[in-house]
Design a protein around this nucleic acid. Structure first.
Lengths: 221, 221, 221, 221
DNA sequence: AATGAATGAGACTTCATTCAT
DNA sequence: CATGAATGAAGTCTCATTCAT
């Protein structure tokens, strides 16, 4: 856990809005805030608890973040612009360049790379998903910095495969929707059932069946 | 909107835990609570605002519901046991009995019936989805009263179609997962893009393509 | 002291902005707030101390006054519009009507009536004077509701005496200024020196000399 | 403005309680403190804002002044002992020596010299007046170092004129009171009305009428 | 049943002050 | 000397909940 956030901090450190280095306590505060927000939700989290978990005085939080909401935004906003969109898209340039890859390989790499990512950033993603509905500014930013970018890139990829004649001629948006919702469904169910001890979940098989399902649905024989 | 909740109230009225009739004020309180909870989230909602919107004194809320959490549960718990599971399953008995229906007709009817339902109970569903992660007792109840029931029924249906030889021989849980996640994806995207004025969303076509996608993925030719 | 404020409360009661009756606790809160504000100044007063002196919970203050500043304004604003201007002007209509009074009698009655008033409302006046410089909205209100009204009325009175030929032909504003500053000086010094035990302050004489000074300065022999 | 304070600093520099030279930062701190205290009042001023305006770290303030109150006193106390009393009295020795001056010339010179002074030290005077009521030690010091000295000197002057037979035989304290309150009234009104653009304030005339008023009130024809 | 004034615990936030660097 | 991160006490304010009417 520590390492996970450490690493994510490294990402953020280079990008701190003011460009300033963070003190150790500041990092602790962010870590605790992410934990607590994910656990209880933003509104039900108290700055007091965040401070305690971080081992700092409550006042220290407000030296670094003017308000509690500021603290939320300083976690969520960079997560969107610097973390999620880049990560989702990472590796796709390669695919765009090489003409060889097939659609099922694309999907397979999407899944494989991202599973790890999701586990690592589970808390931040949970916060993101929970809070977006209640903060219009986050909605806007999500729409602009994540959704739009991801969709545009995926659409291009899909168009390329359609040009190759390897996948079906539907509107690219529709192809993307069908693909993504199937994958998301797989990932969600997996994270529920797949990680319980003693659950009957043959991950290898489920994944391959999922990909095969998509390929039957979208591929051109 | 009023009518919607009115109608839902009728459902609840027969089922009030104590079996007692609700006063007009009590109904107003529930209506307002649903509104406010959906708008701001449970933790960020104040009983004061709920009382104001309901046009009652703050004390009145606590005459009917011992605590704020009680108020939440009195909305969400019956919604799960009396509303959602029954509604999702409604109409399936018919399918189970008649041997005629094909899988794509099943899916089509699932979609068509439920779209209206979702619109009507949007607020309650939003509360449900938002709050489940933070209330273990809700999770349990959801698991037991909704998920388990729905899955069991759907599994039987799927098994029936598999016995007919009209859909593919995968674990029923897998078939259900692939079907449901595709449909949920359709419904979500639809509710985002499909209801904006001027959006390019040909609902008829998207729905049919979605069903066709599932059938190619799961059907036996 | 209690009675003083009681009486002032009576004035305010009829005039509560919302027209609502005040509860006993609300009155206690106002009393304590006036005391504490006068003693320590608005900024250095804590709502905690006000609550303690009033014998209420701190939260109770904020049920009646949304913010601490609200509490200040609910004391000071009506004090200006409903108390000070009317009181300063009280009795002048009579003078305006009867042609008999002489300027020195006017001054004498101004002093005699007002001394009591000042003692009674000392605290509120202290707050007023202390806080006006820091609250632009108070400045404006003071200018409009007190200064302008008082000056207009006094100017008319002075003009009347000038028409009678009993006081000197200077701009009325100048006459008012000279008169008022002399009286204010008398009252201030009096309240400093005159009420210390053992002070050499022959109030009767000082007052008469002050009036005589003004009459020599402004009267027409 | 800068120069004003610079100049006042020069006065203070020679007189720093410890006799030590002030660093540039120390001077900046004092300047900012005077500004902020005058603007918002002592209690509502934050050391943080003072530090920011002074361009120093917050800690630096406390290296020079043990507490915030220390900072206030280091402005106000020397202002009283080294600035105000001396200035008010400046030039009076000459009058005491030469037997020629008349009372109206004394008043005129008091006004003319002091107007400039008031403008220059407006902020410090504002702080003084605002804070004296809340700090008993300031009251005492003001009484002892300013009031007593000024009154004593003025009393001697008045006595001298009375001996000359040029002003009326009242208690000297009374003469001083009447004179000073009239002048203060003039100065205050002047600073309100006289410096607004477009105000109808003929300063020359008002001043002369004020002096004439005093002379009629106190002079012996 | 309904009210709404009152409560007090606890929320967020500010701020003077300290101290290691 | 200067810094600024850190502190924790205290401040203002919110809110679920109670209770006399």
């Amino acid at each position: 856990m520590e390492e996970t956030i450490e690493q994510w901090m490294q990402d953020l450190l280079k990008l701190d809005s003011a460009g300033a280095k963070m003190t150790e306590k500041q990092i602790k505060i962010l870590q605790s805030a992410i934990e607590v927000f994910a656990e209880k939700g933003y509104a039900a989290s108290s700055t007091n608890e965040i401070a305690q978990r971080a081992g700092v005085a409550e006042g220290t939080i407000f030296r670094h973040y003017k308000t509690k909401k500021d603290l939320l935004l300083s976690i969520v906003a960079p997560a969107m612009t610097k973390l999620i969109a880049p990560f989702v898209l990472r590796g796709f340039n390669k695919v765009l360049d090489t003409q060889y890859a097939s659609y099922d390989q694309l999907i397979r790499s999407m899944i494989e790379n991202r599973i790890e990512f999701l586990k690592k950033h589970k808390n931040i993603l949970k916060i993101l998903i929970q809070e977006i509905p209640f903060h219009p500014e986050l909605q806007e930013s999500f729409q602009r910095d994540v959704l739009a970018k991801v969709l545009e890139r995926l659409s291009k990829l899909v168009a390329q495969f359609q040009a190759q004649g390897t996948i079906i001629e539907l509107p690219t948006a529709t192809v993307v929707r069908l693909t993504v919702s199937t994958i998301v469904g797989y990932v969600l169910v997996r994270s529920f059932y797949g990680e319980r001890p003693g659950a009957e979940w043959d991950d290898e098989r489920e994944r391959e069946e999922t990909i095969a399902f998509i390929m039957r649905g979208l591929g051109v024989s």
